[in-house]
């Protein structure tokens, strides 16, 4: 039996002086294999062409369509209506600046992040087009890729109570990015340089271990493990010079 689904959708267009934030409900008949991508596009085509939302790859790969679905941040395109109750509430991601309705500006936030942690390989070497590539252990490559899989959807930040309370908190995705570079032998930054980036209360020591990040990440990044190792690494980096040698630890990520 096909269900009639009821959607409560947050509406607000900051560019329209007549618009005020409110919830609007829509009804739509459920079809087979229906995803929120199909629902929202049908609502825009059939019911309200002013509805704003973001989709891009619609395949769960690009991270564009993150929104709060019945309370939890997630990717709308790979959320099936079959797995949801008859009444569904959609809200834009908190923390990121609202563009309109369900659409938010993640780009600005993430670019600020790249600048802050200098999200690139720091090296003094110069590329030599005539040389063969530097060798790398395949296991190392795979470990880097495991963390490089983040799609910058912003779910982990939007779900984190710490980030909600403190706007200067870097968030799990940022700390994960730093861990990716710490793992990468091509990045020549020293432990001290990394410490200066994240060994603060805005960084790893601000994380309170709420683990919402781990639980909502649509790409199943091992954020809990990354954050745990980073904390240990940074904490020991701070005290290694005063510890007796048998207590010193050099934490590998």
């Amino acid at each position: 039996m096909a269900r009639m689904l009821k959607f409560n959708i947050f509406r607000y267009n900051p560019q329209d002086p007549a618009s005020v934030p409110h919830m609007q409900s829509f009804s739509i008949d459920e079809t087979e294999s229906m995803t929120l991508f199909i629902v929202l596009n049908r609502l825009r085509e059939e019911q309200d062409p002013s509805l704003q939302f973001d989709f891009c790859c619609r395949a769960g790969i690009c991270g564009a369509c993150a929104m709060v679905i019945n309370g939890r941040p997630g990717l709308a395109c790979h959320t099936k209506t079959k797995d949801l109750p008859e009444e569904i509430t959609l809200m834009p991601l908190p923390i990121f600046k609202l563009v309109g309705d369900l659409s938010v500006d993640t780009g600005t936030w993430f670019r600020a992040m790249y600048k802050k942690i200098e999200s690139w390989c720091h090296t003094k070497k110069v590329f030599d087009p005539n040389a063969i590539e530097e060798r790398m252990d395949n296991d190392v490559a795979e470990a880097i890729y495991e963390l490089d899989r983040c799609v910058e959807c912003g779910c982990c930040v939007a779900a984190c109570g710490t980030a909600l309370m403190r706007e200067d908190f870097l968030g799990a995705t940022t700390l994960n990015r730093v861990a990716r570079f710490i793992l990468d032998p091509r990045d020549e930054r020293t432990e001290k340089e990394y410490f200066d980036l994240i060994g603060t209360d805005e960084g790893i020591f601000g994380c309170m271990g709420l683990l919402a990040c781990q639980d909502v990440c649509p790409k199943y990044l091992p954020l809990q493990d990354v954050l745990g190792k980073l904390r240990k690494k940074m904490a020991f980096a701070a005290v290694n010079n005063i510890l007796p040698s048998f207590l010193k630890q050099d934490i590998k990520l």
């Binding site: 709060v68 309370g71 939890r72 779900a159 109570g161 909600l164 309370m165 403190r166 309170m208 271990g209 709420l210 683990l211 919402a212 639980d215 909502v216």
Partner: peptide, 20 residues
Amino acid sequence: EQGLMLQNAKRMRHADTWLW
């Protein structure tokens, strides 16, 4: 801030946030 944290925990129905 207390409100934000509490709303977040409620909205997400997330055990570890509640624990905090």
